[in-house]
């Protein structure tokens, strides 16, 4: 029972952080048809920025509670600055080119940004445990859990609810859905598509940054963390269906739980299981489990 609960909670926490990152990835793909490899960089930059400032503020003797402000602020700043720059300087000039070429360009960007992190933050790991220590731990069903980790599930739920509200209850959502369904139709409806692209990319980048910023207190923030997350969130959006928020949620839960199960019960297949699921889904449902509808083009 305790093992079961541990697996379940580990899995859900893992799913939550995957979902926050993947939601950004899938929104960008849905609207802009770009598979954004440098999404991993947003995550890494979010993690580094928040870890750096949480550490700094703590050294300065400021209250630890400020850490939560830092986390949110880091995500927004990273998303705004990196998202805006990358979209305006690079991607904007590529929309007319092959889908695959754009993927390669974002891959190039990802590599560049990985090294810029090293230059900016050095190779030593950062530990920003303060927010986690502040919230302490709790005993439930015979096991002890960090409260901070549990709040991650809440944050993911909040992000999901926010996305759902934005897409289904606001004018903005209607515009996004029109562009997602058919870009040309969006243009003919008088939508300022370039502007929608810029905002979407920034929004997606903020979510990527948030994933990193929020997870930072629970891990050692060290070089290479963007690589793992980008591969995993690719698996999530492929399983769920690229461009679907619902799909990203389901994909995150599937991948998160399976991985937690593997880590506890069969560590040999930990890496294997994620990609095996991805491959199987691609083979039998190439569009993923919840692919958004597409217009007929013939």
């Amino acid at each position: 029972m305790e093992t079961f609960l541990t697996i379940l909670l580990d899995g859900l926490q893992f799913s939550s952080y995957l979902f926050i990152v993947s939601a950004g990835l899938t929104i960008i793909f849905g609207v802009m048809k770009i598979l954004n490899v440098c999404h991993g960089s947003f995550y890494a930059w979010g993690a580094y920025t928040s870890a750096f400032f949480i550490g700094k503020f703590s050294e300065m003797g400021l209250p630890d509670g400020l850490g939560f402000v830092v986390i949110v602020a880091s995500a927004i700043i990273v998303g705004l600055v990196l998202g805006f720059l990358i979209e305006q300087l690079i991607l904007k000039h590529m929309y007319h080119r092959d889908e695959v070429l754009i993927v390669l360009a974002t891959f190039g960007l990802f590599l560049v940004l990985e090294d810029v992190i090293l230059i900016a933050f050095g190779t030593d790991p950062y530990f920003a445990y303060q927010p986690m220590a502040l919230l302490d731990s709790v005993e439930m069903g015979g096991i002890v859990r960090d409260v901070y980790g549990l709040t991650l599930i809440g944050v993911a739920a909040l992000v999901a609810a926010g996305c759902w509200f934005l897409l289904n209850k606001t004018k903005w959502g209607t515009i996004l859905k029109a562009v997602i369904f058919d870009r040309e139709m969006g243009i003919s409806m008088g939508i300022n598509v370039p502007f929608v692209y810029t905002l979407t990319f920034i929004g997606g980048a903020i979510l990527g940054g948030l994933g990193g910023a929020y997870i930072a207190p629970t891990i050692s923030v060290a070089p290479g963390l963007g690589t793992e997350v980008i591969v995993l969130s690719f698996a999530v959006v492929v399983v769920g269906g690229m461009g679907s928020i619902m799909g990203a949620a389901i994909g995150s839960v599937i991948i998160g739980l399976l991985r937690a199960l593997a880590v506890h019960e069969l560590p040999q297949v930990e890496l294997f299981v994620v990609f095996a699921v991805m491959a199987v889904v691609l083979v039998f449902r190439p569009e993923g489990l919840f692919a958004p509808a597409k217009p007929r083009k013939i």
Partner: peptide, 9 residues
């Protein structure tokens, strides 16, 4: 990585 990525772009 910066060199590779930069060359790529």
């Amino acid at each position: 990585q910066l060199i590779v990525g930069g060359t790529f772009l």
